[in-house]
């Protein structure tokens, strides 16, 4: 067929050949459509990498500048809660992967239960995060006007600092813990925001799955949501050691 012999007049936009209803008109085949969707999702995840990239850059710089403040700041975080949350998130990633597998192999029950498990684990993560944030609020560790350096200039007044055996810090360095908590809240806050968006999407997906959705082979949404969920998991895989585990041995 000659490339330039393209019809210039209107004629019937005929789709004689069979194709599933979910194939959009501008795609040639379903394979093209799913590949396209997953490629688009990956590009979106690249923007997410760069979005968090700015925060990680800031973190690395300030951690080098104010290392003692970062150590003291991280001692304020509960390693138990942090580890448990890591466990929850990794497990939810696993259940989500199982959900994608169930959708691929058209297991209705498997999909529904995987999504329910993922949902519960995700909500559990956010619940624990709330407990942690609340504790920070009570101890005036939220950056801003109410921020207090009490725990760091006088560690004996503070249970966590005492337990970690922190030595009193000069006021100058103690004030830098505000930078640590600024980054802590910015990073975990952005991560939690992604979790909340993810949970909202998950609810919609679960609603559709319960009513028998995703069993016709049109599972692009499940797959792409899976990619998103795993990405959020990866961010946490880095946040956990960077924020919670700075030098626990001191």
């Amino acid at each position: 067929m000659d490339s330039h012999a393209v019809a210039t007049t209107a004629d019937a936009h005929g789709h004689e050949h069979d194709h599933p209803a979910y194939l959009r008109h501008h795609f040639v085949s379903y394979e093209q459509q799913t590949e396209t969707a997953s490629f688009g999702m990956w590009l979106f995840l690249l923007t997410e990498i760069m979005f968090f990239g700015g925060l990680f850059t800031a973190y690395l710089i300030y951690r080098n500048w104010y290392y003692p403040a970062f150590v003291a700041g991280s001692h304020q975080l509960s390693i138990t809660l942090g580890s448990f949350n890591t466990l929850l998130l990794i497990t939810s990633s696993f259940t989500m992967a199982m959900g994608v597998w169930s959708a691929e192999t058209k297991r209705h029950k498997g999909l529904v239960w995987s999504l329910i498990a993922t949902l519960i684990l995700g909500i559990g993560f956010l619940g624990i995060k709330t407990v942690e944030y609340k504790e920070k609020w009570e101890k005036h560790h939220i950056p801003g006007d109410t921020f207090s350096v009490q725990s760091f200039v006088n560690p004996s007044s503070d249970a966590e600092a005492k337990a970690a055996g922190d030595k009193p810090m000069g006021l100058d360095m103690a004030r830098k813990t505000e930078v640590y908590f600024s980054l802590y809240f910015a990073m975990t806050g952005m991560h939690a925001l992604h979790m909340i968006i993810g949970i909202a999407l998950l609810c919609g997906m679960l609603f559709k799955a319960v009513r028998g959705g995703y069993m016709d082979g049109n599972i692009a949404f499940v797959e792409n949501f899976g990619l998103y969920w795993h990405f959020v998991d990866i961010v946490w895989i880095f946040l956990f050691p960077l924020l919670y585990l700075i030098s626990r041995h001191q």
Binding site: S93, M96, I234, F238, F240
Partner: peptide, 12 residues
């Protein structure tokens, strides 16, 4: 963390 992330990217 990098190893864990790589596993997630490669398999999950």
């Amino acid at each position: 963390a990098c190893i864990k992330a790589t596993l997630v990217v490669l398999f999950f």
